[in-house]
Design a protein around this nucleic acid. Structure first.
Lengths: 218, 218
DNA sequence: GCAGAACATGACCGCTCGGTCAACTTGCTA
DNA sequence: TAGCAAGTTGACCGAGCGGTCATGTTCTGC
């Protein structure tokens, strides 16, 4: 989001760069609108999942539909922008927790915090199978790799069973949210209960051999 | 759902009954078509989730769109019919397993078999929050109650931790399928691995207190 | 304060969807 | 085998979607 060293605006018309990092800085009102759209989209996606309509997002942001498309060429691009935020949050969360004195507490906090965020924003937006090589794929991999490190530490500390990998944990990260989803009107914090169950399933105590080898991350 | 004592087909025109059990028998071709539509819908829903289009289903079944609507007044009604099949399968599966000598094996088999079916047919169709009082709500409750009994037996046998309820297990039933869903091209049997993790999370060995009271089924 | 680039707008497009219906075909019954 | 209810068909409808674009508005560097 930082403006970066501005290339002098002499450049005639490069490839339509509205992306945050690149290009020349946005006009003041444009920047405002962009942020409003992102916020509205986040809320709308959280409420209706990926089927949230652009019109609804525009309405919520207080702009016209065309404005949304000026900032995000396509609905997918908008969803990706939101997902990118979430991914970065999770990455830095995991990064912050890494190397903590109490590896068990760190893993618990990560799983709890992650599930909490995923619960609030609805899973679908972040946890989508992305096109290979896409920006989202890269951001997901970043989260994944960070989780792997966290789990490695936890395993070394003996709080995670030896046959469970970081990829396993990454895949199971959303399970508490999904579980709660099958209730019409779930208690708002019920997902915590299933974080507990999952975490106990990851513990070495009384672990029985798993019936399938661990998956590799693409 | 059992056919009950058949009212003689003299009844002139009761409320538009195309439902399987009730009403007068279908014409031969109509019955054939109905079955074809159900099969096609099952496959189409499995491939594309609930967004599968009626046109696609009709095409796959080899009938016109109108025919689909003659048998199922609405798309939701069709989905419900499919979900009903699945629910009945799970109910009778659990019923069969109940009272088994080895309660642990029974629970494992149920979770495995259930996850396998849910994996094949895609979760979405069965596990939808149904309208209260609807047929689907009733069928889901049937599955749920059967799971509760199964889990009660397992708990009594000491293979499930005392603080976990049948409702918990019901909600977690789909977790393995969802976990695998975040992989672009998952190994076809990977879900079994997560059935293992979940089951270990349900075991009494090394269980830590859960951070939220168990939910009640609506 | 002015010019013009950057931006916002909303009517509009093409498309797909769930659902309807008048006209036609077919299986059943007597 | 004739007659008719039951069933089938596919063109059609209106709504909503993602996305476009000519036109009008607003910010900003000079």
């Amino acid at each position: 989001m930082s403006p970066a060293a501005s290339t002098t605006p002499t450049a005639p018309a490069d490839t339509d760069a509205v992306l945050p990092g690149a290009g020349r800085p946005l006009r003041a009102d444009a920047a405002r609108n962009r942020e409003a759209v992102l916020t509205a989209a986040e809320e709308e996606f959280a409420e209706h999942g990926l089927e949230a309509s652009i019109s609804a997002i525009a309405r919520r942001a207080g702009v016209a539909k065309g404005t949304v498309f000026r900032h995000f060429a396509t609905k997918e691009e908008l969803a990706t922008a939101i997902a990118a935020r979430h991914a970065q949050e999770l990455t830095s969360l995991a990064r912050r927790l890494r190397g903590a004195a109490d590896a068990e507490a760190a893993l618990l906090e990560f799983l709890t915090e992650a599930a909490g965020r995923l619960q609030r924003r609805r899973v679908a937006v972040l946890m989508t199978v992305p096109a290979p090589g896409s920006e989202l794929a890269h951001l997901q991999r970043e989260v994944h790799d960070e989780v792997v490190l966290l789990v490695d530490e936890a395993r070394a500390a003996g709080v995670v069973r030896p046959d469970v990998t970081g990829t396993d944990v990454f895949l199971l990260m959303c399970a508490p949210v999904h579980a709660v989803d099958y209730l019409a009107d779930p208690p708002p914090e019920l997902w915590r209960r299933y974080v507990g169950v999952i975490l106990d399933g990851l513990r070495p105590d009384g672990a029985s051999p798993l019936p399938h080898p661990a998956p590799t991350w693409p």
